[in-house]
Simulated assay, not measured.
Amino acid sequence: MAADFSWSQFLWIVFVFVGVPSTFWALVLWAVFSKRRESKGSGPLGLWATGSVAVASGFAACAGWLSWSADYRGEFRGPGLPAPNEFPSWQVAACGATVVVLCLLAARMSRWEKTGGHVAALGTTAGFATAFCIEASTDVTGQSGVGVILCMMGWGTGLTLLMLVRNVVGGRQQSAVQP
């Protein structure tokens, strides 16, 4: 059962399920990476700009792919509230691929090689989960709130692991280039 959209409910859900965990992880990132001497990358964006681009990218990926649905019979359900809750597998896969590519692009645009990747992962996760909160703010059962929590945990873990792999592979490539 869906209720009407409420800005106050949406903002509260974003604060509780996205803002608080994201702030916690941002403080962890700051504590871990502030003590390291990190070489600068080639990108033009600082950490705040990298995070902002990543948040916008994560939000756009979720809203762009999951606000409409094309079912198996060829019928199209356009954007609107309540959002569709059934998607063909190709649409979900395309959404996931888009999120990963946009996160990697945000990390690439960062001036900081390693920290920028982790900030991009955090920002992309927060942006995607914020778009999820739109549906959660209209759900009276609370199940969508659980979906937001799982979204934060899943994307946060997955994108952080992706950035760790990116940092290891990038470190190997740099050491191979430098004699």
Rank of each mutant, 00 (worst) to 15 (best):
V16A: 07
P82M: 07
V92A: 12
A121S: 03
S69C: 08
V140G: 13
L27M: 09
T23P: 00
R166T: 11
A121W: 08
V101R: 00
T125I: 02
G64Q: 02
F24R: 00
K35I: 09
N167D: 14
G51F: 07
A83P: 00
G170Y: 05
D71V: 10
L45F: 13
A94R: 08
R166E: 15
V101T: 08
L29D: 07
F33T: 10
L102M: 10
R73V: 12
G145I: 11
A106P: 02
E86F: 14
V92F: 15
S67Q: 08
L159D: 01
L47V: 03
R77S: 11
G19Q: 08
S175E: 15
A176T: 03
P84F: 00
S69A: 15
S22C: 04
V53P: 00
I149S: 08
R73Y: 10
V165L: 15
I134G: 03
Q143G: 14
V101C: 01
G116V: 12
L47D: 03
D139C: 05
S175W: 11
L81C: 01
V28Y: 04
W12M: 08
R37D: 15
S144I: 04
T157A: 09
E38V: 12
Q91M: 15
E86H: 13
I134P: 03
A70L: 15
T124S: 11
F132K: 10
L161T: 07
T141F: 04
G74K: 09
T141V: 02
T130K: 06
A83T: 06
A176D: 14
D71E: 07
G41C: 10
G74T: 03
E75D: 14
W112L: 05
S57E: 01
A3T: 04
T125A: 02
L47P: 00
P44C: 00
